[in-house]
Design a protein around this nucleic acid. Structure first.
Length: 305
DNA sequence: GTCCAGGATTCAG
DNA sequence: CTGAATCATGGA
């Protein structure tokens, strides 16, 4: 049955978000499935929910395809509308950390999206050595090539069984590069255990990270992202190239290996370290992090070759 | 043409 | 065990 859009409803966020924060949250590298619509709002898919959001006069508003009650409840949970993360942000060490305080001020209201586990795993399996723009394109092609049709041209991300059964030509059209083998390998393992998401969700975070890293194409960074974005483990602290740069320059930790930076982040930022990480990531990408003068000159890279 | 991207894996030492 | 090379693809 073709089902159209619901009416627009106020989402009643515990903390409202400015348009710039909304853009960073939906399109800043957490999820890869949101696009701007003609009116300047956003349309996207998470799980089997097709949703749209916009900044209205009375705060953030949303609509969904299909039954409004079910879809809007899913959308509110996805956006942390009840404000659980707001209380965690208040407990971050921003009072004693001016770098963090600046990053919080740059994107007020920024939150970790509560994505379905499969969405996060597929997205970050595509993420290695790729820019966010290209990850979004790969994920979009995976959805249209192999995902369930959700109406009006929207598609869910593919089930593991569909991904495992995909032929080479289909994966080639998704422009995955060497990541195609990772996706197929992980899909084959997880297609064989339909309860994987529930089983993983029941694990404490260290064991969850170990399980994730046993999958093809999942190393420390991708595992940390999937734990954070797909399983709501807000203490998980992904260390990517931007966080390396941010901690190196603004915290004077230049040259530290990734695993040590991860330990630093979890200890320094505490139980919501992943939330702090997202603010620092956004600030670094916006070029808005302070730079420590002592470690500023770095013409070392040019000396080789 | 060169370099790099929300890295992971494999190989050399 | 650590460090380097390799992987496929596209944009700057």
């Amino acid at each position: 049955m073709a089902v159209g859009w619901s009416d627009w409803y106020p989402l009643g966020l515990a903390q409202e978000v400015p348009a710039a924060t909304l853009a960073e949250q939906l399109d800043g590298g957490q999820a890869f499935r949101w696009r701007r619509d003609e009116a300047g709002g956003w349309q996207g898919v998470f799980g089997a929910t097709v949703a749209a959001v916009r900044v209205g006069d009375a705060g953030l508003e949303g609509r969904v395809r299909g039954p409004a009650d079910v879809g809007l409840a899913a959308l509110r949970a996805y956006l942390d509308a009840d404000g659980a993360q707001g209380r965690l942000v208040a407990d971050l060490p921003w009072r004693s950390d001016p770098v963090l305080a600046g990053a919080l001020q740059l994107h007020p209201g920024l939150r970790i999206l509560r994505q379905p586990p499969r969405d996060a795993l597929i997205g970050f399996l595509c993420s290695s050595n790729k820019r966010i723009l290209q990850i979004r394109e790969m994920v979009a092609r995976l959805a249209t090539e192999l995902g369930a049709e959700l109406g009006a041209g929207f598609h869910a991300l593919p089930e593991w069984s569909a991904l495992a059964a995909a032929d080479d030509a289909t994966l080639k059209r998704c422009a995955l590069g060497y990541r195609a083998a990772f996706l197929r390998g992980t899909a084959r393992q997880l297609a064989a255990r339909p309860d994987w998401a529930e089983a993983f969700a029941a694990l404490p975070t260290p064991a969850l990270l170990t399980e994730l890293r046993a999958l093809p194409g999942v190393g420390p960074k991708v595992a940390a992202c999937v734990a954070l974005f797909g399983f709501g483990r807000l203490e998980s602290f992904p260390v990517d190239t931007w966080v390396v740069q941010a901690l190196g320059e603004a915290y004077g930790l230049r040259g530290w290996p990734a695993d040590r930076l991860e330990s630093f982040g979890r200890i320094h930022f505490g139980p919501a370290a992943g939330l702090a990480q997202q603010f620092l990531f956004a600030a670094a990408r916006a070029g808005q992090l302070p730079v420590t003068p002592a470690t500023r000159p770095t013409p070392r890279a040019r000396a080789r070759r």
